[in-house]
Nucleic acid binder design. Structure first.
Length: 293
DNA sequence: CAGCAGGTCCTGT
DNA sequence: ACAGGACCTGCT
């Protein structure tokens, strides 16, 4: 077990920020997480954190939670004039943009289309249980936890279209099936994708069946750590409309409306607008509308 | 029963 | 380019 003290880091906020679907609250202040085949239990008391994992895994989780980045600088850069963002950043000041696996984010956010977060979690867990690897983690003291890694492309390719449809993935089943084939035959090159900058990664991702602008931005933000990415979903659309509307936007075509609003209101946070997106998403959804997971 | 949920694709102008 | 409709499934 490793104990450290960290500012601007809050497990409940991160778990509720909608960026990861394999973090669970075991009891107040204690969370589990699964990523890249590893398992962690982490507890929080104020700014004190206990990492329960093999010592050699600690650097992995330190990077996973993005603990080398100075979020205090992001927070203090919020414009005083923007009261909505001020409130949001204050409410979510412990959020961090996690370093998650790109392939897992591709599948996860394809699944996320037109679904609620609890249903996304359920689907991701089902895929892991059925196509991932069963793993065991034994703690000092003897407690053993069974968990499942998220399936690799080679593992998930074993799922037929019918298999995926039987998991109630609906029209997303076709998207997933197709992209597994692409990942297997090299059309989707994850190593190449990971080496790209934000713009190139967006263009590349948009070429795949089932990935549109919103999902591609989520993959960039949560799976490739391009923190300038700013996904616009229905929640963000509502926020933009309710808090950032200006009359001149009426002249814009719908297809360009939101990207213009994002550019004009969040472009000033150059290179890290995605952090602000997380603050307002979390604030609106969790604090103002009471969604907990 | 209609409407909507972390959208995307396809089609017709 | 742009707008409108279809699409799986489950929940209200």
């Amino acid at each position: 077990m490793i104990t450290i003290e960290i500012n601007h880091f809050d497990l409940r906020q991160i778990a509720g920020s909608g960026q990861c679907f394999r973090m669970n609250c075991l009891k107040p202040g204690l969370y589990s997480a699964v990523s890249r085949g590893r398992y962690l239990e982490i507890s929080q008391e104020g700014q004190q954190f206990h990492f329960h994992c093999p010592d050699e895994d600690y650097p992995f989780w330190h990077h996973y939670f993005d603990l080398n980045t100075d979020y205090g600088a992001f927070l203090s850069s919020v414009k005083k004039r923007d009261h909505y963002l001020q409130n949001a950043a204050n409410a979510g000041s412990g959020i961090r943009i996690l370093n998650q696996d790109a392939w897992e984010m591709i599948i996860t956010f394809i699944i996320s289309q037109q679904r609620t977060i609890p249903k996304i979690r359920e689907a991701v867990e089902n895929l892991s249980r059925l196509y991932g690897e069963e793993k065991h983690c034994t703690f000092p003291g003897g407690k053993t936890v069974v968990y499942f890694s998220f399936p690799t492309p080679a593992q998930l390719k074993k799922a037929s279209l019918e298999d995926l449809q039987s998991l109630k993935l609906g029209y997303r089943a076709r998207y997933i099936h197709r992209i597994c084939l692409d990942a297997d035959n090299g059309t989707l090159d994850l190593n190449r994708l990971s080496a790209m900058g934000y713009r190139d990664a967006m263009e590349y991702l948009l070429g795949f069946y089932g990935i549109g602008t919103k999902v591609a931005n989520c993959i960039c933000l949560f799976g490739l750590h391009h923190i300038e990415a700013f996904p616009v979903d229905t929640w963000i659309q509502q926020i933009l409309t309710n808090h950032y509307y200006r009359k001149k936007y009426d002249a814009l075509p719908k297809s360009r409306l939101y990207e213009t609003m994002v550019q004009e209101n969040f472009g000033k946070y150059k290179g890290y607008a995605g952090v602000m997106q997380q603050y307002i998403f979390y604030y609106e959804r969790t604090v103002l509308h009471g969604r907990s997971s």
